[in-house]
């Protein structure tokens, strides 16, 4: 690709991101319904989790399936802090993020020395252990199967449910933007480069002295911190957290979001979250079919669109950039 094309392409990137942000900011004013605001808030929260998950599964090559466990752990932490110690939700969010980070180290230290299928199974094992421990909790410290309820919900002021939800949505959107910026910085840092080199040519990367294990632990911790924070935010949004948040179907839906959007791409998880969540809402009346459709869509995407839905969109954008370049080239040839 020649230099002017990539410059136009970068400019188009900025225009498109600006457009997407504008739509995200204006959406509540246009939709102005409690139902749609709830959908948008959940999209923001799950997009954060999926971004963090994609960072490790798509970029760092860690096939971790403990992401939902870390998310729920953040929620339980803040719920317990709120119920027992009366902590404020924001403090609880930080506590949730810290606990999820510590838990990720408990998972990561034995798992991340291993590879591939072993990581997949060990992390899934942790997921199952957490789920069972919450359900088995007979002395009701964690509320057993019903989980924890009746703790403080977010209150960012405002009158009426639409106004309240609008404010919560803007906070969630801000969190999504911050999390995405952090993840963008990591991907484009020397560490991100190291990960891509590990993913694409492991032997070469190791021979150049990339400290694989330490980097993996670090990125796993960062991902867990973001995920735990999102989990705590989610718990205070719903005002409840329970082991059903760890259901296999939910894990699969999250997976479908990343895969359909495009794993290993920056915008893929966000796009996938929006597409799958909206489809999910449309299919509400077909409880049975919806898991089937997501499963089939996941298989079809892996086979026909390995980079997910962002790939054709990116191709479209590049063609547009080329077209702009061609027109500009006719009118005003670039200076040599």
């Amino acid at each position: 690709m020649s230099a002017p094309t990539s410059r136009t392409s970068a400019m188009l990137d900025r225009v498109l991101i600006g457009l997407a942000l504008a739509i995200a900011v204006l959406a509540p004013l246009v939709l102005h319904s409690a139902y749609w605001l709830r959908v948008l808030i959940l999209i923001c929260i799950f997009a954060i989790v999926n971004q963090a998950w994609n960072l490790i599964i798509g970029y760092a090559g860690i096939w971790s399936f403990a992401q939902l466990a870390l998310f729920v752990m953040g929620g339980y932490t803040t719920a317990l802090m709120s119920l027992n110690l009366g902590w404020s939700p924001w403090l609880g969010c930080i506590a949730g993020a810290v606990v999820a980070t510590l838990a990720s180290m408990v998972i990561g230290i034995p798992s991340l020395r291993l590879k591939g299928a072993y990581v997949f199974l060990l992390t899934l094992a942790f997921h199952e252990i957490f789920r069972n421990l919450f359900i088995l909790d007979t002395d009701q410290r964690f509320g057993g199967q019903y989980g924890l309820q009746r703790f403080e919900k977010w209150n960012f002021g405002g009158e009426g449910s639409v106004e309240k939800l609008t404010r919560t949505y803007y906070v969630a959107l801000a969190l999504l933007i911050v999390a995405s910026l952090v993840i963008w910085r990591i991907i484009h840092s020397p560490m991100g480069l190291a990960f891509r080199s590990l993913r694409d040519s492991e032997a070469y990367a190791l021979s150049r002295g990339v400290p694989e294990y330490r980097f993996k632990l670090l990125v796993y911790a960062i991902s867990a911190f973001i995920t735990g924070f999102a989990g705590a935010f989610y718990a205070h949004y719903l005002g409840s957290i329970s082991p059903t948040n760890l259901d296999f179907n939910i894990l699969m839906t999250q997976m479908a979001m990343i895969v359909i959007g495009g794993w290993g791409t920056f915008f893929g998880p966000i796009l996938g979250t929006i597409v799958v969540k909206l489809a999910d809402e449309q299919l509400r009346d077909f409880e049975q079919l919806r898991t089937l459709i997501f499963g089939a869509a996941m298989v079809a995407t892996v086979i026909f669109l390995p980079k997910g839905l962002v790939a054709p969109l990116a191709a479209l954008k590049n063609r547009l950039a080329a077209a702009i370049d061609a027109r500009r080239g006719d009118a005003d040839p670039p200076a040599a």
């Binding site: 096939w63 699969m252 479908a256 895969v259 898991t291 089937l292 499963g295 089939a296 996941m298 298989v299």
Partner: peptide, 11 residues
């Protein structure tokens, strides 16, 4: 292939 066989399993 892990993801695609998982998807087929769900179906």
């Amino acid at each position: 292939s892990i993801i695609s066989t998982l998807g087929v399993g769900i179906v």
